[in-house]
Simulated assay, not measured.
Amino acid sequence: MTITSRTIETARLKTAVLERPASGPAARQVLLVHGNVSSSEFFRDLMAQLPSDVHAVAPDLRGYGASEALHQSSLAIDATRGVRDWADDLRALLDALDWPQAHLLGWSLGGGVVMQAALDAPARVNSLTLVAPVSPYGFGGTHGAEGTPNSADFAGSGGGTVNGDFVRAVAAGDRSDTAGSPLDVMRKFYFNAAKFQPTPEQEQAWLTSMLQTKVGDDHYPGDLTPSEHWPQVAPGTRGVANAFSSKYMNLSGFADIQPKPPVLWVRGDADAIVGDASLFDLAQLGALGVVPGWPGAQASPPQPMLGQMRLLLTRYVRNGGKFREVVLPGVGHSPFIEAPEEFRAVFTEHLEGN
């Protein structure tokens, strides 16, 4: 079945999507939500492989891909709302598609977005699939399974924690393979390079997708606030990395939603981005001696991202929900790309059972 691209005018913004209709009546409507510094393009192969009765749509979130140019202040990311700007955009897209309900899949940052969408409108969600999802307490600056902040100002999270050279390379459209370039980062961290090698065509398409990310204080990575606490930066109020700071993003209420869609959590055991020793967490890099001045594990321990998600989903089950965790060996941050057959099998089973 052919995958097409189009732009859909929603009540909130013009959203670019990839779409693969069902062949015949659609038994299931599926929305696929990408992560940070990526776009719907990363889902192209998965969409082509889904069962024929699935109508799949993968949007480019605001600030990414080919969605409406977001240099207008009204379309900036208001980080003080956490990930709600994107979650509200998803519900507006569901309205424009005339989908009363859908199955939602969220990868990385997209995992937090679909959880927020379910928190705000649980009746619209038939099932949730979380693929290498961000912690329910955001990224960086917390400790313990309850997401306790390391400092009162949430230092160690937000726009100031993102590598500035990488941001400048994205803004410049850098297509080189030099150390720290977007292509180099994708090769080293989006996948487990020891086990997976994309084709040159895939790699270039995904790189193009990454370079479409809108850069600036209003978008990626966002602004920052100086801090007296290590690493001397705390969240600002605008942009992507601030939106998924635990100062503003807290999904702990997910355990209490009604009704409770069944949840599938799929991750790789070689994920270097989301894990209990993430190489993108400044506290972990401090512990490794990469970032100077680390004050030690008592003051700034690495964030236990997996433990935080597992505790929340365990509470979800105790409150009457269903959740299944699938760990794929040797797989990094992109299970649906690195292990397509295994991923498709568990995802299809999840859809067919709900």
Rank of each mutant, 00 (worst) to 15 (best):
18 L>Q: 14
125 V>T: 05
125 V>Y: 01
335 P>C: 08
352 E>S: 12
335 P>L: 04
75 L>W: 01
73 S>M: 11
302 P>N: 09
315 R>W: 01
183 L>K: 04
49 Q>W: 05
108 S>I: 06
12 R>L: 13
322 K>A: 14
276 D>W: 06
315 R>G: 05
282 L>F: 11
47 M>D: 08
16 A>Q: 07
22 A>I: 09
197 Q>G: 06
141 G>M: 06
173 G>P: 06
22 A>Q: 10
324 R>G: 08
113 V>T: 06
284 Q>T: 11
237 T>V: 13
276 D>F: 08
101 Q>P: 00
212 Q>A: 15
305 M>D: 08
3 I>E: 11
196 F>H: 15
298 Q>Y: 11
137 Y>G: 02
45 D>I: 05
156 G>S: 09
313 L>R: 01
79 A>D: 03
167 V>L: 15
12 R>A: 12
213 T>P: 04
298 Q>I: 15
299 A>L: 15
145 A>F: 09
311 L>F: 01
1 M>S: 14
319 N>T: 03
239 G>K: 00
129 T>E: 02
245 S>N: 14
139 F>L: 13
290 V>Q: 14
248 Y>K: 03
154 F>W: 15
128 L>S: 03
220 Y>N: 05
104 L>K: 00
204 Q>M: 15
279 L>H: 08
267 R>G: 02
105 L>C: 07
157 S>E: 14
294 W>S: 05
187 R>S: 11
23 S>K: 12
229 H>Y: 13
270 A>I: 03
187 R>N: 15
333 H>V: 13
218 D>A: 15
184 D>N: 14
336 F>L: 09
18 L>Y: 09
332 G>C: 10
173 G>E: 09
196 F>T: 11
26 A>P: 04
329 P>G: 13
283 A>M: 11
163 N>P: 01
212 Q>N: 14
327 V>M: 15
189 F>I: 04
303 Q>D: 15
7 T>A: 12
103 H>A: 06
169 A>P: 07
259 P>L: 12
46 L>V: 10
118 A>M: 00
20 R>Q: 12
159 G>T: 14
258 Q>P: 00
74 S>D: 08
184 D>G: 07
160 G>L: 10
128 L>R: 02
285 L>S: 05
230 W>L: 07
354 N>R: 02
253 G>S: 11
146 E>P: 06
78 D>H: 12
343 F>M: 05
10 T>L: 09
256 D>L: 10
201 E>Y: 10
40 S>N: 13
250 N>C: 05
232 Q>M: 09
247 K>G: 01
112 G>A: 10
322 K>L: 13
306 L>K: 04
8 I>W: 10
237 T>Y: 08
10 T>W: 01
27 A>W: 05
319 N>P: 01
242 N>C: 12
320 G>H: 07
126 N>G: 05
265 W>D: 03
41 E>V: 15
6 R>S: 14
288 L>W: 08
341 E>H: 13
299 A>T: 13
335 P>K: 00
278 S>K: 05
142 T>L: 05
225 T>V: 12
320 G>L: 10
207 L>T: 02
21 P>M: 07
351 L>F: 12
1 M>T: 09
274 V>C: 03
270 A>V: 04
182 P>S: 14
